[in-house]
């Protein structure tokens, strides 16, 4: 999947390893390659001297103690049999790609905000702001992992922090839980979510539930500003069924997209040609449907549009439908 266009617009940061075992360092390097283009910034490996951020063992050695005094932001790596370090950014070894990505984005978010909150605990770190570039938000990435079963405990609970409250996600039931106020903020697009992380908490009683598609739609406006990088933009897209609308904005654009895309596989160009939907809106719709497992991709099937598709309003009912919309005030 070509993602060079994403990377080109990213801020670059260098990550240095201090005191990590060879296996851990090697695993981290592999993970950085996997993450390429998926983080808020372009992370690369460097020696500790030239690094912007250090990934450092919690073992107290001369080397680690010396680098602790360097003043550079540090991600402290510890093992399960060690005491949890009192540091803003920590990773328990062994860790997964998403966990590394999550903490790197937290560090990046803190650095981009001036680094003033580096001494805060992880729970207090504000959700990282998404980049204005063609990027995928940490929340969207972590949700992608979760809905695809790439979580430590699929029956467990995940949590995402925001400046307006906490969102819970149960992968097993594909339900989100949060306060009504937070859902309203999400629907209004006025709040951003941090990456989903495992939690031992229970869902608070005062929360309300929200189905997967509704939440995906709410956050897709900033989840991925273009087609998510794991989808082939040249493929054909086919909706398995109409989404459960729930809190979805019920605009004519979305209804038209559903009607079109449930009929047969269509490329993005074909959909735009018929629906006159903007590229951004279409990509957002496809992203939300894909995340909700409503989308079927077909790599090779690209059937030309019927001639009638290009002749807007020329069908048997074309003029009547236009008149009816106008009469009922339904015109877009």
């Amino acid at each position: 999947m070509p993602i060079s266009w994403i990377v080109e617009t990213m801020r670059k940061q260098r990550l240095g390893f201090v005191g990590l075992g060879d296996d851990t360092a090697s695993a981290c390097l592999s993970m950085l390659k996997i993450m390429d283009g998926r983080s808020e910034v372009d992370w690369s490996h460097s020696d500790p001297d030239s690094a912007d951020v250090l990934m450092i063992s919690c073992d107290q050695t001369d080397e680690t103690q010396r680098w602790e005094r360097s003043g550079k932001p540090r991600i402290v790596v510890y093992h399960g049999n060690q005491q949890k370090p009192a540091s803003p950014f920590i990773l328990q070894h062994p860790f997964r790609v998403m966990q590394l990505l999550s903490v790197l984005d937290e560090v990046a978010g803190t650095l981009s905000s001036g680094g003033t909150s580096l001494s805060h605990s992880p729970a207090q770190v504000a959700a990282p702001s998404t980049s204005v570039s063609n990027n995928v938000s940490p929340f969207w990435l972590s949700l992608h992992e979760a809905v695809n079963g790439n979580v430590t405990d699929p029956a467990g609970l995940l949590v995402s922090s925001s400046s307006h409250g906490v969102l819970y996600f149960k992968p097993a039931s594909q339900r989100f839980y949060a306060s009504k106020a937070l859902f309203r903020q999400l629907a209004a697009g006025s709040v951003e979510l941090g990456p989903l992380k495992s939690t031992a908490e229970a869902v608070p009683e005062e929360t309300v539930a929200c189905p997967l598609f509704s939440l995906c739609w709410m956050v897709s406006r900033y989840g991925a500003t273009h087609l998510a990088p794991w989808m082939n933009p040249e493929g054909a897209f086919h909706l398995k069924r109409w989404p459960s609308f729930g809190t979805l904005e019920k605009s004519r654009t979305h209804l038209s997209l559903c009607a079109l895309m449930t009929k047969r596989p269509l490329t993005r160009e074909q959909i735009q040609q018929v629906s006159h939907c903007s590229e951004e809106e279409l990509d957002r719709f496809i992203n939300a449907c894909e995340m909700s497992d409503l989308m079927v991709f077909e790599e090779a099937v690209q059937v030309p549009l019927p001639e009638a598709a290009a002749e807007e309003g020329k069908g048997r009912f074309g003029g009547l439908i236009k008149g009816l919309r106008s009469r009922l005030g339904l015109s877009a």
């Binding site: 019920k250 004519r252 209804l255 038209s256 559903c258 009607a259 079109l260 009929k263 047969r264 596989p265 018929v274 099937v301 059937v303 549009l305 019927p306 001639e307 009638a308 598709a309 069908g315 048997r316 009912f317 074309g318 439908i321 009816l324 919309r325 009922l328 339904l330």
Partner: peptide
């Protein structure tokens, strides 16, 4: 809303957009 969802489907059928 119900009428609009119906009209969208009628329009698509009018385009000959049935499953290829």
């Amino acid at each position: 809303l119900l009428v609009e969802a119906l009209l969208c489907q009628i329009e698509v059928n009018e385009m000959g957009m049935m499953q290829a």
